[in-house]
């Protein structure tokens, strides 16, 4: 399940606690993405489907695979490279307010387009960072949490879904079914609509991933995800704040970013986000991505 595994662990842990199969669940993440300590070999075995049907054509890591659908998305909806760049600009604005963010200098659409091409349509600043890092969270029953010194966050809804294993087998390149199904399940379980969400974290491995997520979650109309960022709604001062830690694009990205999306959501729900704190956050949404559009997971939780 790759980078959204940690969100899925929350869903499963919630079920285990509700079923009396566990009292306390610790979910952890640590990864040496930059220093590559303890990192094994990479690449598909030559007899695996990815080894037979993708590796011979020179795919080389997420920038060449997560990016495969984007040309079709751009063509179908008439979306430009400038519009994709606006996601990085919006997210960097949040990073300037986060003292822990790796990249804190403001950037413009022109800066993104002038950064070197990695894998068209992705320039360097369309891509997430590669960092070392970690995080953890503890889940217990509502009853057990009552006398904790710190105010808890309560899980309202959770969803998970898988589409393909290899991105070349994705059904529709202009939309993610895995993201959509995960979101629908989480909203249904929570009994809430998108208008109830005060704060949103979307796994931004690349500038297009939060765009696909906004559309899959029903927050933006198909093809209008980049306009959402361009308009400033997702940026500091906007009415729909997204990726307030600076995201995988500007805060941190160890390789599997899902934990950091959750910890920022919880930090905001606890009112502990300092200069970047969004006022009046009661309901938060986190959406994670696994593999190359292979899997999606959504959490909706509250401090009430």
């Amino acid at each position: 399940m790759g980078g959204c595994s940690f969100l899925i662990h929350v869903r499963h842990a919630t079920a285990a606690i509700a079923a009396g199969m566990a009292d306390v669940v610790l979910i952890t993440h640590g990864e040496s993405g930059r220093s590559r300590i303890g990192v094994g070999g990479q690449g598909a075995a030559p007899a695996q489907p990815a080894g037979q049907f993708q590796a011979p054509y020179g795919v080389g890591g997420p920038p060449t695979m997560f990016s495969i659908p984007v040309a079709r998305y751009m063509q179908r909806f008439g979306v430009t490279e400038e519009q994709l760049a606006s996601v990085a600009v919006s997210t960097r604005k949040w990073a300037t307010l986060n003292p822990r963010a790796a990249m804190r200098d403001p950037i413009t659409v022109e800066d993104v387009l002038a950064s070197r091409l990695i894998c068209w349509p992705l320039h360097l600043l369309n891509c997430c960072l590669v960092t070392d890092g970690g995080g953890a969270l503890v889940l217990v029953s509502e009853e057990r949490a009552r006398d904790f010194p710190k105010k808890p966050v309560y899980v309202l809804g959770a969803g998970e879904s898988v589409e393909h294993v290899n991105v070349s087998m994705m059904r529709d390149f202009h939309e993610s079914k895995a993201y959509r199904v995960a979101g629908e399940n989480a909203f249904r379980m929570a009994g809430l609509g998108t208008d109830a969400i005060d704060h949103t974290m979307l796994y931004d491995a690349f500038t297009h991933t939060p765009v696909y997520m906004l559309e899959a979650l029903g927050i933006a109309q198909p093809g209008e995800g980049t306009s959402f960022f361009e308009s400033g709604r997702a940026a500091p001062g906007g009415d729909f704040p997204i990726n307030t830690n600076g995201g995988g694009l500007s805060y941190t990205h160890t390789g599997m970013y899902g934990m950091f999306a959750m910890t920022e959501s919880i930090t905001q729900l606890r009112g502990e986000a300092g200069e970047r704190q969004v006022p009046g956050v009661e309901v938060g949404l986190v959406h994670g991505a696994g593999g190359m559009f292979s899997a999606g997971a959504t959490l909706i939780w509250t401090n009430q």
């Binding site: 020179g58 795919v59 080389g60 890591g61 920038p63 060449t64 990016s67 495969i68 659908p69 984007v70 040309a71 079709r72 070197r116 091409l117 990695i118 894998c119 068209w120 349509p121 992705l122 390149f173």
Partner: peptide, 14 residues
Amino acid sequence: LETYVINHRAAPRF
């Protein structure tokens, strides 16, 4: 042509 990328940062041996 369904969709594509133009890879500027070659995979090893490409």
